[in-house]
Nucleic acid binder design. Structure first.
Lengths: 150, 150
DNA sequence: CTTGACCTTCCAATGATGGGAAGCCTCACA
DNA sequence: TGTGAGGCTTCCCATCATTGGAAGGTCAAG
């Protein structure tokens, strides 16, 4: 199976398949005499596994751990659960940060006349944040990667 | 005021101040004879404005629009409100996507024994997603940039 | 005058992804 | 058997916001 077919079957783009191979997330694919990569149905399963984990927001490093457990028939489900649980916490942190942003913005938007006059509490708050509108710890609020999927 | 002091006063790192200047988000700073950039309190206000908008999750392109409105004394608050409102929608989309991930994962985690046996519904679902656990539209779910803040 | 803290520019890396060019391979069709 | 389309290969570049570092100039205090 060529890379294009594997891509279509797995939902992972050919570009990304090569990238995952290059970064070591997946083993180097077999090659035909022509140099073309050759994928088995098992490989496609692995790619779908990765695709699915990405859809759930796992970072590539986490996916790597999950893949190792997937391949390990003597894994302990506790290890899988731990990874998933810690990912949940991470997601919840991000959600919390985003919710705080929304709350702040909604407060401001609801105070803005939205007419043709220049006075605007949103601008005012950006200039000089009012105490009530504070983001939590300006430090590390729920910030993080979530992929480019155009 | 040197760039380091402006950075400290505004909460925007010196690196980022130079970057914003380079990309045209902010005008080129005045220079002293030595070549050092020189910032006025007004410049620091602008930097704090940017910092604050970043904290609220605005993308740099949006910040650019906001800065233009900020500088425009004959702005219409409606324009500001529109930008803020559309940013709220964007944030809410992201939150929705993240919540769906959390829901799916929580369903799986709650079904996982988390012991030393290998059987694990999380792994199983990654292999072959069960219908109930679906992400919404595998397409463009709340995906987006949110900065690296280490 | 020396020293250390600051500033300058330039270059590189991050993570996940897409875009494109130059060149080889394959298959179907005439 | 030749040819063309389309797939594959590698390699390089761009994204976005941000950080890091190296090499060298400047400033202020001792």
């Amino acid at each position: 199976m060529n890379i294009g077919q594997a891509a279509k079957a797995s939902g992972v783009s050919a570009k990304m398949i090569r990238y995952y191979e290059q970064t070591g997330l997946i083993p180097k694919a077999d090659r035909r005499d022509s140099g073309y990569r050759d994928y088995s149905p098992g490989d496609v399963n692995m790619l779908r596994f990765i695709r699915r984990a990405r859809d759930l927001g796992f970072a590539v490093t986490e996916i790597n751990e999950l893949l190792n457990l997937w391949r390990d028939r003597s894994r302990h489900s506790a290890d899988v659960k731990r990874i998933a649980q810690s990912h949940i916490f991470e997601l919840q942190d991000r959600i919390k940060g985003l919710n705080q942003m929304v709350d702040t913005l909604q407060g401001l938007v609801s105070c803005c006349a939205g007419d043709d006059r220049p006075d605007c509490p949103i601008i005012a708050d950006l200039e000089e944040p009012s105490s009530g509108s504070a983001l939590p710890a300006p430090a590390s609020v729920g910030i993080g990667r979530l992929r480019h999927r155009p």
